[in-house]
Design a binder for these strands. Sequence first.
DNA 1: GCGTTTTTGACAATCAATTTCATTGTCGGC
DNA 2: GCCGACAATGAAATTGATTGTCAAAAACGC
Lengths: 133, 133
Amino acid sequence: MTSDAGTLRNTHQRRAVSSLLGSVEGFHSAQELHSMLRDRGERVGLTTVYRTLQSLADAGEIDVMRPPGGEHLYRRCSQGHHHHLVCRSCGSTVEVEGPAVENWADRVAEKHGFTDVSHTLEIFGTCQGCCRS
Amino acid sequence: MTSDAGTLRNTHQRRAVSSLLGSVEGFHSAQELHSMLRDRGERVGLTTVYRTLQSLADAGEIDVMRPPGGEHLYRRCSQGHHHHLVCRSCGSTVEVEGPAVENWADRVAEKHGFTDVSHTLEIFGTCQGCCRS
DNA sequence: GCGTTTTTGACAATCAATTTCATTGTCGGC
DNA sequence: GCCGACAATGAAATTGATTGTCAAAAACGC
Ligand SMILES: [Zn+2]
Ligand SMILES: [Zn+2]
Ligand SMILES: [Zn+2]
Ligand SMILES: [Zn+2]
């Protein structure tokens, strides 16, 4: 379904995208990442940026966030299941974990007879830096 | 900011959309609702369906769900803050509440100095009816 | 009714994301 | 080191949901 990971070829473009994701802070859209690559002098097509981000996300190497009314945002995150606390104003992000939440979600789903359970959870707010009005 | 709620006029179209939402089960997209209205013989433009859903959502009268990779889905739900447990296969929905989750989200945001906190949370799974493979 | 103001809706525009498809690049095998 | 099968690329075209436009129609206070 996902990973013919063995057949993935090691291309200049994939390395460029992957390396860029390793060197930037916070979440960025495909289009932003594409222009960053242009600025760096890398020649990578927008389509390829989309495709590479897709495959990295499928492989679990990056996280995807879908803010209300905006384009998809991508970021290289730490391993393992976690969620994001995001500033609505500047976009700065904190990774948060909550075993209690994970358990609650699974339990409530089981209680209703659901299997193969997953969930999405994002917390939005205004960070300290953006708070001074 | 939002609500000149007093100036909203009582039109045939708004009544049609609102009434439809009261009589259908589960979440539906704007386009689905639009064709349902056509099937019912109501004459409502797609643009108006979008606008009406938007304002109903702004007014908190309906819930909006944004499933991964799909269009926005709308549904008239019960009052108050809750979340949704949704079947990935048939779309059937259960409303769930979790005070513990709400508290956790607020606390973790405060701990990181975030204010004006909100969150989104959806649980996905396969319901009993869809489970027989 | 009348006039004002909101609402409607056909159509155009937007815009992220995907598809197409001819060209290019990888890489295992020789 | 070269070949050839096949994955990967990317420019351009396409999709498809959603939003903007604006003239015409409907609602409502009087
Ligand atoms: Zn901030
Ligand atoms: Zn989780
Ligand atoms: Zn189901
Ligand atoms: Zn909640």
